[in-house]
């Protein structure tokens, strides 16, 4: 993130924080769509989702590092874009596969068990991934190779880092595409049907298992993109990087209304901006914002901003 511009103008500073917050929030939005879809279908907080995000960061880091040939003595060595493309494809497909595998091995056998069992399993899978990550990748932080000039782009009175712009554009494109997919295609209709009523959807000829698998694959792919974007922007990869980010993304999903993709996007952006604002005042309290937001939302409007409020049947 860029330091504040030297300006006394409060409005400009607020705008600057907003811009920083939007970049941060875009990543939350990308991760939040995965939570929101899975919760919509299975009523399960997929704790492991945050670690799929972590895997996405690592899965894009290694190809970028190994393939990204840096010419010696270049002024500002950068990873070429085709390497980034390859890293992107690898991270997305590997994470989608991981997500499907997690669903198949850990969640599907428990689909009819109590929700508590599923929740505990999800926590277990999450810790497993974190620690296997630590065993495989090592606990020391890794840094993603540079791919852009990392300069700021002036947008009117404020300055935005070029990497932040990339985050915003890519995230908007991905979330938009997912939304269109869910709303406009037959497969998307099946996904919506499953989140509405899985049993009835099955009776209507929807292949429930395949649809749930697909939900996990798409959500995990989105998380992978988020992980890659954050890796390129704030290059400090650790095996536990997913924990806090994942929690915040889940809060974003709740804030926007669980089950809704535009809601997740909106919640992510709002949370990112709120965090940046608080962070400008005191960086350490920024992490607590999400939890305050969570408690307030659940007390005031548990269905979130864009969620449908369903009455709980007795």
């Amino acid at each position: 993130m860029l330091p504040l511009l030297e300006t006394s103008d409060l409005a400009t500073r607020l705008l600057q924080q907003c811009a920083n917050g939007v970049a941060k929030g875009s990543v939350y939005a990308l991760v939040a769509v995965g939570y929101t879809r899975v919760y919509g279908v299975l009523q399960l907080i997929n704790f492991a989702h945050s670690d799929v995000y972590m895997l996405g960061a690592y899965f894009s880091y290694y190809p970028a590092k190994w393939l990204g040939y840096m010419p010696e003595g270049a002024e500002k060595p950068k990873v070429p874009f085709y390497v980034l493309g390859l890293a992107f494809l690898f991270a997305v497909s590997a994470c989608a596969a991981t997500g499907m595998l997690i669903e198949r091995l850990a969640y599907r056998p428990l689909r009819n068990a109590s929700r508590l069992s599923a929740l505990i399993t999800a926590i277990g899978v999450s810790i497993l991934l974190q620690n296997v990550g630590q065993m495989v990748f090592g606990a020391d932080p890794k840094s993603f190779p540079r791919y852009m000039d990392q300069e700021s782009v002036a947008l009117g009175p404020i300055a935005v880092a070029d990497t932040s712009l990339v985050i915003i554009v890519v995230a908007a494109a991905m979330v938009g595409a997912l939304h269109l997919f869910v709303q406009r295609t037959r497969t998307g209709a099946a996904m919506r049907a499953c989140s509405h009523d899985m049993r009835t959807a099955g009776l209507m000829g929807v292949n429930v298992n395949a649809t749930v698998s697909l939900t996990f694959a798409l959500g995990s792919a989105m998380a992978a993109v988020g992980g890659m974007l954050i890796a390129m922007d704030q290059p400090r990869l650790t095996p536990t990087m997913g924990l806090l980010a994942g929690l915040k993304a889940f809060v974003a999903a709740v804030l926007g209304g669980i089950g809704s993709i535009p809601g997740a996007a909106l919640g992510g952006l709002l949370l990112g901006v709120a965090e940046s604002m608080v962070g400008a005042w005191n960086t350490t309290y920024a992490d607590a914002v999400a939890f305050v937001v969570l408690v307030v939302v659940l007390l005031v409007k548990p269905s979130g901003i864009l969620g449908k409020s369903g009455r709980e049947k007795v």
Partner: peptide, 12 residues
């Protein structure tokens, strides 16, 4: 991380 991984596996 081996220890915690084993914990997690045990849990699952």
């Amino acid at each position: 991380g081996f220890r915690m991984a084993l914990y997690a596996l045990l849990l699952v």
